[in-house]
Write a protein that binds this DNA or RNA. Structure first.
Lengths: 194, 194
DNA sequence: GTCTATAGGGCGATAGAC
DNA sequence: GTCTATCGCCCTATAGAC
């Protein structure tokens, strides 16, 4: 196996948190999934479960940040790109059997009021999504203020629609959210004349 | 005390799940907060923690359903009402010290892939939000299809923006989401000529 | 319907040989 | 850096008196 023990621990933690959240994920489950003994976990992560979770959230966040540009790049017109990205996410989630795709949003909601250290980590990760997303929208022709406004709305709509789709077992929320975001972009380019 | 033991157990569970989620909330914490002994909990809820959580989610959901009309009724124009409701939610959450307002959305995200019984309960609750919200938008003049489309987008944007606001300690996501929903309504009334 | 006491198991974390 | 064995605690749930 070419992966290090440390990498396997982080990956297993991300995977388990994605499906069960932070509290329901036990360090025992992590060691079993990572084929690593207890002692290795506390060797690499002396502060234990929170430190391991922080690492998994940062890694997942860094991977997830690349997805939005990837989905929107094929479309010349941002008014087309945005609902297409939401529709692609909808098909992805439906095809997976309504599974959670990324632990960051759900874990953020679960621990925001009760785990200050982890809340700061999720804030850092989501903050980096905002920065990179706003930069992308500027590159696609939006003004700085509009780009920032739009990425906040898009991330909120995506995270909320993920929860609704997984709960209701329906792609309708993601599709409706995509149409709403398209309307917002339309309003922006109508004013700036893009 | 005028409340029954059963009611206090349900209220305490809703309150604890709102702040900590489902997995991190223990039945011991519930009995302490409700000033009720262990035996009473298992007398009223023989199936234990999941049954108690289901009751708390249904109660919270029924209370929460009334909030959106309450916030939007004062405004004659739906294009004004929607961003105003998002702005009011933003001030509420800021004023509370960025606390979660309702356990349904966050618990739904936490358990959708791992607790089938509770997932069905959250689906039922959110489904009732969709029904009642769509009815409200129809009463406010939207076509059936538009009303359903809009409530899905609004609920997704609200739930997602709540998580972002609490995590980032900023009202920006809720404000941006409100502006996006306003643009969607604008597009709807422009077509139907409302 | 209320309450105390406790069972039985899994939790996060640690010790210490290798 | 890896691994086994285990600690002490807290978890959900139950038994049984009142």
């Amino acid at each position: 196996m070419s992966t290090t023990t440390r990498d396997r621990l982080v990956t297993a933690t991300a995977e388990l948190m994605r499906r069960q959240g932070y509290s329901a994920t036990t360090v025992k489950q992590v060691t079993v999934a990572a084929h690593a003994p207890m002692g290795s976990l506390y060797h690499h992560f002396p502060e234990g479960k929170p430190q391991l979770a922080a690492s998994a959230l940062r890694t997942s966040g860094a991977a997830y940040i690349q997805l939005l540009p990837l989905l929107m790049d094929p479309y010349d017109d941002l008014r087309e790109a945005i609902p297409a990205a939401f529709a692609a996410a909808a098909e992805q989630i439906r095809g997976s059997g309504w599974m959670n795709m990324c632990p960051v949003g759900t874990v953020a909601g679960e621990i925001a009021d009760s785990e200050p250290g982890l809340r700061e980590v999720t804030a850092e990760v989501i903050g980096s999504w905002v920065e990179s997303g706003a930069d992308y929208f500027v590159r696609r022709g939006l003004a700085d203020v509009d780009a920032r406004d739009l990425i906040f709305a898009v991330l909120a709509a995506l995270e909320g629609a993920f929860i609704l789709c997984r709960t209701l077992r329906s792609v309708e929320p993601l599709r409706a959210a995509g149409r709403a975001m398209a309307a917002r972009v339309e309003a922006m380019v109508a004013v700036s004349g893009g």
